[in-house]
Amino acid sequence: MSASDEKLIGIWGYPEPSVMEEIRKKYPQNRFIDLDINYNSPESGILPDAYCRIMKNIIDNATAFQQNLDVIIASVGREKCDSGWFAANILRDMGFKVIETRFEEYGDKFRETPISKSSLPLKDKINAIMDNIIEKQDLKLTQCRPEYGFWGVPPNDLDFLDIFPHNTHVYGWTRCVEAGRPADIELEMYVDEGIPTVFFAQTFCAKMQLAKYLAKKYNGIYIDVDDTASNSVKAKIEAFIKLG
């Protein structure tokens, strides 16, 4: 994932953009790395086994890249979760340089969400939205009408997203990220009514309650996945799409 001497700036969640710019200028040679993502880093054993897989990625990645990480910009506000705040404090206690940011106030600023509504494969949509946090992507996008919906955060296991047809729109926190409003609960709870939507949450994440509630409210289907999606979870999604 990283050359042994490559210098890195770690992030998770959606840090305050102005803080990211400040740190980018301070460490011009460093590459940003999203610690949320599963890079198959060795298990650090710091967090409990039964815990949010994304938080385990953050801690495991940080410890695996400790020598390369000059600084970590940690999302600790409502745009992430309490676990993000605890993780920031654990890593600081372990000797990491951690800058905490809260990205919760946006005023009237609202970016359009063309990636969420595009005809890109769902996995590409989600990756593009998340990559945009670090570096604005130059994408040629074709908009499409939604036939299906995916609501939620970027999963630890991105492969099961291949089940979804390309005319699946993105909702939930991921769309909030594209809109530049990651703690906008009203936008997070928005879906297009009548569109069959899969409401996804990582197992052990607080967003499970929102996903389950919204799935019932909008006649969608609720799924939670811990590490990788089981065959039965994949089959549920397939069936939901086929029978819809």
């Binding site: 006649n219 039965s232 089959a235 939901f240």
Partner: peptide, 16 residues
């Protein structure tokens, strides 16, 4: 699998 008014409505699968 649940049907309502003859149409598929909901489903679940418990493998664990």
């Amino acid at each position: 699998v649940k049907f309502e008014n003859g149409k598929y409505r909901d489903l679940d699968w418990n493998g664990n």
